[in-house]
Design a protein around this nucleic acid. Structure first.
Length: 110
DNA sequence: CTGATGACAGTAC
DNA sequence: AGTACTGCCATCA
């Protein structure tokens, strides 16, 4: 592992801490990773993850509370996983971030 | 090193 | 409300 944790390592570490039934946004992960505004890189990191990764990458959604999968079909799968964890999606396929968004106890929430 | 890229976010219309 | 454009910033060629 690199001596200085890269942005990628930080994001992966944060995603690994997301408990079941909760989600985090890309911008939030970027902020907690120490690089506010780098939300796009968070997506790039998750994009490179293998499908059988141990990381709960499916619990990462965009600021709108919707899944931003880069591949059709994968979004349906991700949505099913989140619903199985107790999350509720609206008719538009969005979930209530106010109730579902999770913040590490280490960080102060707004 | 420079330019292009992108699982986003915020603002404008 | 939904769509379009811009800004941001870490990787990759």
């Amino acid at each position: 592992m690199p001596a200085s944790p890269s942005f990628r390592e930080q994001v992966l570490a944060l995603v690994a801490q997301i408990p079941s039934g909760r989600v985090m946004t890309y911008g939030q992960l970027a902020l907690l990773a120490g690089h506010p505004g780098a939300a796009r890189q968070v997506g790039s990191v998750l994009r490179g993850l293998p499908g059988d990764s141990d990381l709960p990458w499916q619990r990462v959604v965009n600021a709108q509370g919707r899944v931003s999968t880069y591949r059709v079909g994968l979004g349906e799968w991700q949505r099913s996983l989140l619903e199985a964890e107790g999350l509720s999606f609206s008719a538009a396929g969005q979930l209530d971030l106010v109730a579902a968004q999770w913040w590490p106890s280490d960080s102060a929430r707004p």
